[in-house]
Nucleic acid binder design. Sequence first.
DNA 1: GTGAAAGCGCTAACAA
DNA 2: TTGTTAGCGCTTTCAC
Lengths: 329, 329
Amino acid sequence: MCTIYEIARLCGVSTTTVSRVLNQHPYVSEEKRQHILQVMEEMEYTPSSAARTLRSHQTKTIAVSVPAVDHPFFAQLIKGISKEALDQGYKAIVLQTFYKESLELEGLQLLKRKEVDGVILGALENKWENIKPLLANGPIVLANEYHQTADIPIIGYDEREAAYKAVDYLIQSGRKAIGFCFDTESSEAQQQRRQGYLDALSAHSLPLNEDWLFGEAFTIEDGFRLMDFIHVMPDAPDAIFTGNDQVAAGLIKQAILYGYQIPEDLAIIGYDNQDICEVTAPTITTIDIPIVELGQRSVQHMIQLLQEQKPLQREHIQLPTELVTREST
Amino acid sequence: MCTIYEIARLCGVSTTTVSRVLNQHPYVSEEKRQHILQVMEEMEYTPSSAARTLRSHQTKTIAVSVPAVDHPFFAQLIKGISKEALDQGYKAIVLQTFYKESLELEGLQLLKRKEVDGVILGALENKWENIKPLLANGPIVLANEYHQTADIPIIGYDEREAAYKAVDYLIQSGRKAIGFCFDTESSEAQQQRRQGYLDALSAHSLPLNEDWLFGEAFTIEDGFRLMDFIHVMPDAPDAIFTGNDQVAAGLIKQAILYGYQIPEDLAIIGYDNQDICEVTAPTITTIDIPIVELGQRSVQHMIQLLQEQKPLQREHIQLPTELVTREST
DNA sequence: GTGAAAGCGCTAACAA
DNA sequence: TTGTTAGCGCTTTCAC
């Protein structure tokens, strides 16, 4: 591990000159530049990023905060983010909140400690008031989550419209008793989605049955559990719009076990268009979301923010979604 | 953002003293310690990690290199690693190789640039000779991959035994024409696994049919494709031990489409015990691997290495695996 | 118990 | 076009 001093000494120049070739500063004679470059090569010189960070106050690192990396949705989001970051010369640090406010907040301390240049939030566990003060330490971008008032870039898709499309499709195909699954009540994205559900119902003059709103639905297991519950409901829905494909897969599997015909007895629509949609029997109708692109766009936006240095502004980017019909409807 | 100087000035002490309380050095009077702590609190002082890194040559960061984070296996591995790292006061940087040697090598430059203290390799794309020189820059730990000679800690499980268990089970249940899927030929872990397959065959005096070895099997899609291929084989196997649950799920789905009865016409065993095993029809018999624990152990090992500062040694830790029988066999 | 001062590796303002 | 020099924020000898 040699330093810029070594190189300078070896080349008979000052550290400034070496630093200049490192940063492609124009004022270096071609001759010296070549020589220095060559010596660097020979010595296997690699600049210390710690020193650079200390000087420049830039870490070239972005943190991504998600509830859990092994949820297929977030795994894909991270895939996009991590790839794009690396492409742009940044590193990505992964933070998991496990759906806990405290862990989210703790992760965000990285911003305060200047260990990362910015944070991409793939979900939002805390109230915005708790997050907001951290903006003083660096930009925050919301990916896949929504907030009414936060003055930061929000990269997502039209949750309301996506939900509307799904529910409308169910109604068009003759369903009248449509259930809705969500994960957490607190997520504004989920509320938007619910609004789409409600709008579709009222567009077709269908009344809302509160019993058909099912919360805490995240995983395949939750799908199993939920189906157990629905199976014994006196007034069960004949279709369900789930919040994600995992839950849909769980529902379907368990329903088949109970002897349901799907979609005849119960139609099901998922969300995310994960691979799992193609291997269940029946396959799952779902909403396709450009997740990887969502991650990439978030990074691009973040880097732009970092470079322009201008104040954070509210901005709402919505990527297109698509209803993909399969056997479960 | 205030510095140690500010705090020192405000408290009428030297920076040394402030630094001492920061590092819980004993020689500070209780009185001053309290005062300093309080002022830090008031000023919302947070130490600059860049400066600390520059001084101490420690980044408190570990890199994890995997082919792709959205593969369920690696997603879970990262979950374990990322969680354990954070618990221990380390950060985890995610590197994706996309199965390319060049990207793996590029990621490993982080070690050289001293941007991370160590690297956990969740797979191995390069020849070991290409990786080895990097050991001069920091420890490398192999998680879930195997190498014959590398003098580094290897945390995994007995691939050979796991494969043996699976194939033996198939043979015990009357199968004689057993196929084997793997992803890449170059992985030594895969070779171990293949050895288990071979050993089980010969233990029961079954000959090896080279046509029943199927490579490049990573995803659900690959499972589909593979089944298309098997379907038209003149001499098709009556059971397949796949390298992962995704492939198993794809095989099953496609086989059912072709009118196969599973397991009667074709028995299938997966690998990893992912959630997907429970939602396919039929459900998937598989090998359970403690993936999250594997990740955690790797981090623990890495941190120990980092702290002890003693030279890297070859070490081979094997976690237990288990055959989980379901409907596909 | 406490502080002065050097230095980790790099960059940039200023001078030449 | 090139070099001198002063820090970035922190830790750690060494001296008191």
